[in-house]
Design a protein around this nucleic acid. Structure first.
Lengths: 254, 254
DNA sequence: TCAGGTGATTTACATTATGGCAACAGTTAT
DNA sequence: ATAACTGTTGCCATAATGTAAATCACCTGA
């Protein structure tokens, strides 16, 4: 769910992290570039850069600041806490094979889904070389809707408050009441479907994945272009495969 | 080399990052645990935690703070800047195969070597399940010494000042003068060897890897236990394999 | 069910640290 | 030499930290 932070927040840390993010997103920035992107003084930016350099989160080459390789290692380490192993890959790949469509497993965090492993994900780029999205909304993805249907209404509301219901495709549900109606219907099943709500021509079916304590860890989903698989087949044939895969995954998560 | 930061450093950011690191290293911490590890007030720690939560660097479950999966994704993204791809794996695996020993490629950063890819690295653990080290000193590793030999003397000195010359095995060079003598010898060759300087019974040969601009990116090394490969064979047979591998890698780094 | 812990956050306010601004020192390209 | 850009320094207004004490959220035994 959304972490409902009520206490004090530290602007210094926020500013440092924003600078770090900008450098990461732009694959390296100079002081001048940062100065034009960040609303704070040059000297202040320098202080942040000095701090991040000294902490080895950044590296500087020829006046350009880059995120360090050490950050990559820290991230790798952070990943150890999450289901990753061969299990996830095996289950997702098997689901993709069984349905002959793309499958993926996402982690549920802060009211969004973060891509953990996709059957065709290779170096985060698809066949066209465009970068895969790594963050998804819940309201317009199959696994996301299935997760929302399991949450308490106030939790859903806080997620809507935080992330909104942005339209990303023709069929995206952008109205809270409509969403709650949809969730009520889903609640009786163990899965949810999307019909061109995420991207045009794309349909998918998804379900939540729980850990040993029953907490929602993430979501598993599978789907493809409408000319390859229609809605009937999606629910008739894919639902079982999906739920089997969920079970395999959950039993592996102790 | 070491980033020689002279300007102002921000304690707020440093404190936030220290808390983040502690949580990462301990795989989750409570406020009480952090309070006992960090020299700052509980209320202040809360402010840091609030900030890191809101920035989605942390996640909280049942009073325990964990590093978020999003951090893992950020790290993955940071890694894209570095040679990773199949090229590194191919070259390292080929070097390991040709010598029948363990090979690895490390990134040179902030005066240390960070593990990028090792031929037998699997999930960061070795056969015994113990976690692999991901950071290495330069003075007691083969690739590290080869890199030091290419640097200017003042750069080497600043690295020694920063990291020292900690003894990690019987043969570790812990005296600066001895190290400089060793580096002078290495300078005439394109590689360096370690003889039980890193770990008992372990010998290895390593060399620097440069990018298209001639900057040192990291190091490639290969070696194994002394009962499998002696020093003579290391320099006679492995040196060529190593230098070939370095060349392959460098030509792939444009 | 209720009083009494226990630990997690938040508050209030004095003490320090940081942010913005502007001047200046160093480097590099023109 | 000039211009352009990077990074540092000094000075106040603003923000963060330390301390102690007040809330809050749970849990537990009577």
């Amino acid at each position: 769910m959304i972490e409902n932070v009520t206490g004090r927040r530290l602007k210094t840390t926020q500013a440092s992290l924003e600078i770090l993010s900008l450098i990461l997103e732009h694959d390296g920035l100079t002081l001048a570039e940062l100065d034009s992107m960040v609303d704070s003084s040059k000297s202040s930016i320098c202080s942040h850069l000095n701090t991040l350099l000294e902490s080895r989160y950044l590296v500087k080459h020829d006046g350009v600041y880059h995120v360090s390789f050490r950050v990559a290692l820290l991230g790798e380490r952070a990943r150890h806490r999450y289901p990753n192993d061969e299990v996830v890959e095996r289950v997702v790949d098997e689901l993709a094979r069984a349905t002959d469509q793309e499958a993926n497993f996402t982690i549920f965090e802060h009211g969004r889904l973060l891509m953990c492993y996709g059957s065709s994900t290779e170096e985060g780029r698809d066949a066209n070389g465009t970068r895969y999205r790594s963050e998804y909304h819940l309201h317009n993805t199959a696994a996301g809707k299935a997760i929302l249907a399991e949450l308490d209404r106030d939790e859903v509301e806080s997620i809507i408050d935080y992330w909104g219901l942005p339209r990303e495709s023709e069929g995206t549900i952008t109205n809270p009441d409509q969403l709650f109606d949809a969730l009520d219907e889903i609640a009786t099943k163990k899965y949810a479907v999307v019909d061109e709500e995420f991207a045009p021509n794309l349909i998918a079916i998804g379900a939540p994945v729980h850990d040993g304590d029953g907490r929602i860890v993430g979501g598993l989903s599978v789907g493809g272009p409408k000319y390859q698989v229609d809605m009937t087949r999606l629910e008739r044939e894919f639902a079982d495969e999906l739920l089997n895969a969920v079970e395999s995954l959950e039993s592996a998560l102790t």
